[in-house]
Nucleic acid binder design. Sequence first.
DNA 1: AGGTGATGTGAGCAATTATTCATATACTGC
DNA 2: GCAGTATATGAATAATTGCTCACATCACCT
Lengths: 199, 199
Amino acid sequence: MVLSPRKLPKQGRARATCDAILEAAAHIIARSGLAAFNTNAVAERAGVSIGSLYQYFPNKDALMVALIQRQQQGQLDTLMAAAATIDPAADLQTVVRALVRAAMQHHRTDDLLATAIDHEEARLPVDDLIGHYLDQGGMLVAALLANFQDQIGPVEPQVAARTLPALVRAVTDAWANLTPPQLDTAEDEAVKAVLGYLR
Amino acid sequence: MVLSPRKLPKQGRARATCDAILEAAAHIIARSGLAAFNTNAVAERAGVSIGSLYQYFPNKDALMVALIQRQQQGQLDTLMAAAATIDPAADLQTVVRALVRAAMQHHRTDDLLATAIDHEEARLPVDDLIGHYLDQGGMLVAALLANFQDQIGPVEPQVAARTLPALVRAVTDAWANLTPPQLDTAEDEAVKAVLGYLR
DNA sequence: AGGTGATGTGAGCAATTATTCATATACTGC
DNA sequence: GCAGTATATGAATAATTGCTCACATCACCT
């Protein structure tokens, strides 16, 4: 099965169409889950015809793969933006808190989408595609933590890139699902869990 | 939408039919993911007719709900079995390791199934159904950790029941997805993460 | 202006799938 | 054996859905 895009948009409106399709797909999954994710619904929500969708994505799985890439890119962007604001003189706990806040942001706004994407990543052959993003994120985190080698164990970039986001989400979910949600506490707990894991 | 079972089996063979249906559903999701989970395939794999399936489950979602209950019960059973073997004189790390091993078992054998069920739990209104299991698991863990109040912070049973399994899976996934999988390391790392979170 | 390729359309086909129902078989108590 | 109930069957149906294709419209170039 071909999972790469069918054709690349060359004009501005075509790029807008692609964006609208991906945005619609993300919205549908975030609101109604994987079961509601079908190509006709995506096209309708995007305000384009079903034919336009298949101009750019050869099949449904290819659309899902593009969505996974988009999500990974978004997480990496958020992480890099957070890293850029970190004071070079900050202590370990402050750095970790900034990273946790960045990781929490995506899962708090689109939890169903994040869970669905995890599931689809396991089903589709996208290891090569997401490896790029994981590597970049891992190196960034490792670099940020390199100053604290006396306080924490060695940080494997490849492992940190996978473990830390998952760890944050685990703790976040636990507190966000309570009634009422206690999101401030979630951040504190996630910081504690990450620090506990690193040491 | 009605999600409770349509009728309860009264004869032995009917109970066997129900079990076969649930077993088939779990097998299909574990092997091929949510996309391959449809009622016709479940009935065929279970070796019963599609009509029999609808004798006991009014619709597909009801079958999913029953599967969720089955999974929760299985996890609780595993946890209780592990708790029963814990030496009352064991130290904190030993207790945590036993709990981690119990939590890892299910996700290692049926990772795709566990992920899919997480996703469906978020979509279906099953809070009341799974709350029972979470409460029991949380109380059990809280009781096991009550002896160590001097070493760890206060343990809220409701939170522990949600956080700890998720935490374990987060770390497990990070190490199991490597090539080659390092499952022994995964257990060590999960123990470290849990201890770090508790303290 | 007009030609050419890029982009957009949506009815509709083929395949899949959730669900029903009329019928058949198995069990249980008498 | 018989009546009554529980259980099992699977072809058929209605709805959904992935995807195609013949055609229309748009944007850019000379």
